[in-house]
Computed example of a mutant assay.
Amino acid sequence: MEDMFKNINNMSNKYGVKFSGVDLISNTHLALLASEYAKEKGKFHEFHDKLFYSYFTQGKNIGDVGLLKSIAESIGLNKDEMMKRLEDGSYESNLAEAKKSATHYEVNSTPTFIINDKYAIVGAQSIESFKNVLNK
């Protein structure tokens, strides 16, 4: 893990992004459900950015309900409505569909990008890697 974060930090330094070296593996189920709520409300990218920063830079537990509520509220989402939707299972089918798709494409690590249902880019890759695949 230490080598992985060293490599990621080497690549991300030029963008001003620092990774903390996470020593906590969070249960991300609720965070994924909350992301679906944010997507529905047109705030996915803001939510995802804060979630990513909280976990990878600050080393926080993104499975913590309090943190998810705080992030939602900070970007103008209704935290109580979000929790109600998470608790009533509104987004479970979205995650089941994503899991089905990941199984179909044999995804076994993240991030994995599937391009044109033909090419897979796995892991933290350079922009050049993406350009090469997109030019195919």
Rank of each mutant, 00 (worst) to 15 (best):
G42E: 11
K69A: 09
I8G: 01
G66C: 02
Y91N: 05
S12F: 12
N9F: 04
F56L: 08
E2T: 05
F130V: 10
L86P: 03
H29K: 09
F47M: 05
A120C: 14
K131W: 03
K60A: 00
D88T: 05
S109M: 13
D3A: 11
G59N: 00
E46Y: 09
A34E: 03
G42Y: 10
L95N: 04
A31E: 02
M83T: 10
S126E: 13
K84Q: 14
I71F: 05
E40Q: 11
K14L: 04
N94R: 15
G16K: 06
M82P: 06
V22F: 00
N135C: 08
L77F: 06
F19H: 09
G16D: 08
Q125W: 11
F47W: 04
K131T: 10
I114E: 13
K18E: 08
I8A: 12
S54C: 03
S20F: 00
K14I: 13
K79V: 05
N13I: 08
N108G: 05
K39E: 12
G76Y: 14
D64I: 01
D80G: 10
G42R: 11
L68G: 01
A120V: 14
M1F: 02
F56A: 00
E92D: 15
E106W: 03
K118V: 13
F130S: 05
N94C: 09
A120D: 11
S20G: 06
G89A: 04
S74D: 10
L67P: 01
G76F: 14
L86V: 10
N10T: 14
N9W: 05
S126R: 11
S129G: 07
A96M: 10
F113R: 06
E36H: 07
K50E: 07
D23E: 04
H29L: 09
H48D: 11
Y55H: 08
E46I: 07
F56K: 01
H48Q: 13
S90E: 10
G63Y: 04
K69N: 13
S74G: 11
G123L: 12
Y55N: 07
F130R: 03
N27W: 03
L134W: 09
K43S: 06
V65N: 09
G21D: 05
A124S: 14
M4A: 12
F56D: 01
I71K: 02
I121Q: 08
L95I: 12
T57R: 05
R85L: 11
E97N: 10
F56I: 00
K100W: 02
Q58D: 07
N132L: 14
S109L: 07
D23S: 00
N61Y: 02
K18S: 07
A102H: 06
L32I: 01
M4D: 08
K60F: 00
L77V: 09
S90F: 03
I62D: 02
F113A: 13
F113K: 06
N13H: 08
H45S: 14
I127V: 15
G76V: 12
Y55D: 01
V65I: 15
L24F: 05
N7Y: 14
S26A: 10
F44D: 04
G59P: 01
K43P: 06
Q58W: 03
M83F: 13
D117N: 15
F113E: 09
F52L: 08
T103K: 14
L68K: 01
L24S: 00
Y55P: 01
M82V: 09
G42P: 10
I127S: 13
K84V: 08
